[in-house]
């Protein structure tokens, strides 16, 4: 998929071990590894997927970023010019919600055009394993109202809400009149570079 043209850049942000990679893994490859020990993402991983919304094909370039603090300083290179951000927090970890707020602030400040989708992950832990919920729904809703964004609760284990989340992102993108205009170059590609083939962009 990578290498094909990307219309919409989506970035995942959130505290480390918050379930970002699992979410992307479920969406892109429809799989979940329950017994594999946690591996932190290094830097960021890129994946792409095509979705059809009302007869229009949208290719999403999805950036799964590392949650580790040491990458914070360079996170801008990952969310720059993103049109949608999935800001993740772990429903069983209240500190992860504070971290999510940090990312929201960061995005509002630097990428005002980026739509935010606040996403509580690991819903299955509450539902199946009866782990205590640490981030209350009302608290999230209040905050979401404040910043005008949508809220999802997902489980990468069961797949709950994940397709819906990405479909909604694609739909919002298609329905946004701003995006009907011809594609603007994101300014990352260096036009001075000799390029014999037709320009392909990939993120």
């Amino acid at each position: 998929m990578s290498g094909s043209r990307v219309d919409l850049k989506v970035v995942l942000l959130g505290k480390e071990a918050g379930g970002k990679t699992s979410l992307v893994e479920r969406y892109l490859h429809d799989r979940f590894h329950p017994n594999v020990p946690y591996q932190n993402t290094i830097g960021a991983a890129f994946g792409a997927k095509k979705v059809e919304v009302g007869g229009i094909n949208v290719t999403m370039g999805i950036w799964d970023t590392a949650g580790s603090e040491r990458y914070e300083a360079m996170s801008r290179i990952y969310y720059r010019s993103a049109r949608a951000a999935i800001v993740c927090f772990d429903l069983t970890d209240d500190t992860s919600f504070d971290r999510a707020k940090f990312w929201v602030d960061e995005l509002l400040k630097n990428e005002p055009d980026c739509k935010i989708y606040l996403t509580g992950t690991k819903y299955d832990l509450i539902e199946e394993e009866k782990r205590p919920r640490k981030v209350e729904e009302t608290k999230v809703e209040e905050y979401a109202d404040e910043i005008h964004c949508l809220v999802y609760e997902t489980s990468s284990k069961t797949g709950q809400n994940i397709k819906e989340l990405f479909y909604k992102i694609a739909q919002d993108y298609v329905e946004d009149p701003k995006n009907r205009e011809p594609e603007v170059d994101e300014g990352i590609i260096d036009s001075s570079q000799p390029n014999t083939k037709p320009d392909k962009c990939s993120c």
Binding site: S2, L28, H29, I42, A44, A45, F46, G47
Partner: peptide, 9 residues
Amino acid sequence: SFETSDSWV
């Protein structure tokens, strides 16, 4: 994790 997707590190 590098095996499944392209990374930028």
